[in-house]
């Protein structure tokens, strides 16, 4: 696996493994969890951040809690006996960060989403495909993205982005 890709206008680097929990439940349960974590419930295909924690909307009954190892224990008491599922998925995905004015253009070599800031503003997130790999894309800034792929696809994802970087110019 490539650790970093440098191309004109964009830098790709592998992010260190981060804590990740998948929280499933009905809407009131998810709202309760968000309140306990100190964020507003994210809108569909959007995320909310609070300190190191990012809460990503994945589906109507599903949030991904990224970056806070204590997130699960912080939710234990507030969620109590409410029906929900909280699963540690910290090892399931590998993450890359893409940064630079050409980051969206590089992603567009393999992601078919409209990455214009109007359509996919900072904070937006979506499950999609990177070439033939499943992917979760999160925009963390105008020119910064986090791309998560299942661990076994990480080599492919990096190689694909490296090839995409070769295709950026001219």
């Amino acid at each position: 696996m490539v650790d970093a890709i440098e191309a004109p206008g964009v830098r790709v680097r592998a992010l260190a493994p981060a804590p990740a929990f998948l929280l499933c439940g009905d809407a009131p349960t998810l709202a309760l969890a968000c309140a306990a974590l100190g964020v507003d419930p994210p809108a569909p295909c959007a995320s909310r951040a609070a300190g190191p924690l990012a809460v990503l909307w994945l589906a109507p009954d599903r949030l991904l809690l990224l970056g806070d190892a204590q997130a699960a224990s912080r939710l234990r008491a507030p969620l109590g006996e409410r029906p929900h599922a909280l699963v540690d998925v910290s090892d399931g995905e590998a993450a890359l960060e893409l940064e630079g004015p050409a980051a969206a253009r590089l992603l567009a070599c393999a992601i078919m989403l409209d990455l214009d800031t109007g359509a996919f503003p900072p904070g937006a997130c979506a499950r999609t495909l990177l070439g033939k790999a499943p992917a979760l894309l999160l925009r963390t800034g105008e020119a910064r993205f986090v791309l998560r792929t299942p661990r076994s696809y990480a080599t492919y994802a990096c190689a694909l982005l490296a090839e995409g970087a070769r295709g950026l110019a001219p």
Binding site: C24, R62, H84, V87, V89, S90, D91, G92
Partner: peptide
């Protein structure tokens, strides 16, 4: 049914 399915294939 109140039940959720989580793919943990790559987690383990």
């Amino acid at each position: 049914l109140k039940v959720w399915l989580v793919d943990v294939t790559e987690q383990w």
